[in-house]
């Protein structure tokens, strides 16, 4: 007969990493520290990218044309986190897929800075297709979190 007794044993992994960004991502991240959202452009297909890309994955050529955008974006999709998970933000929080300036692709960031009474009202406050603009952090270090969040423009 199989035993009806069983045990669980707990363990975890705390691991640290450091990643080299390379020149394209470095330039893009450093500009965030100066409250600028840059785009770069593939000179072959003409597509712009925010976040910048080191090379165009379609044309398979390096990218070296850069422009500064006005930072405004369009919400392409979003979700609202209503449940608490370990190591994830406290709910409610809105994760947006945001297409900035002339970019052909989007970036992921929070959408916040709009008034609401109850958490369940949030879906009515944000629409796909709405314009958003960045709200900058006081202290910046060349990181995506130099943008605190995007707010309705």
């Amino acid at each position: 007969m199989a035993s009806t007794e069983f045990m669980n044993k707990e363990y975890n992994m705390h691991l640290d990493f450091s990643v080299s960004l390379g020149p394209a991502y470095t330039k893009w991240m450093k500009a965030l520290g100066e409250k600028k959202i840059l785009a770069n452009k593939c000179s072959k297909c003409g597509r712009h990218f925010v976040p910048a890309k080191p090379f165009c994955e379609i044309c398979f050529e390096p990218i070296d044309e850069w422009i500064e955008t006005d930072g405004e974006g369009i919400v392409e999709s979003f979700t609202i986190g209503y449940a608490k998970f370990r190591n994830l933000p406290d709910p409610p929080y809105v994760i947006g897929v945001i297409r900035v300036g002339p970019s052909a692709v989007s970036m992921v960031h929070w959408i916040a800075g709009f008034p609401y009474d109850k958490p369940e009202d949030i879906p009515d406050k944000i629409q796909i297709g709405m314009k958003v603009k960045p709200v900058w952090a006081e202290e910046r270090k060349g990181d995506l979190l130099d943008i605190r969040y995007f707010e309705p423009a």
């Binding site: 979003f78 979700t79 609202i80 933000p89 994760i95 995506l144």
Partner: peptide
Amino acid sequence: PIFEKPFGLGAAHMGSL
């Protein structure tokens, strides 16, 4: 890890997008 993980995407959020 650098571009998207900090914003709190779990699988449920990916499906929701």
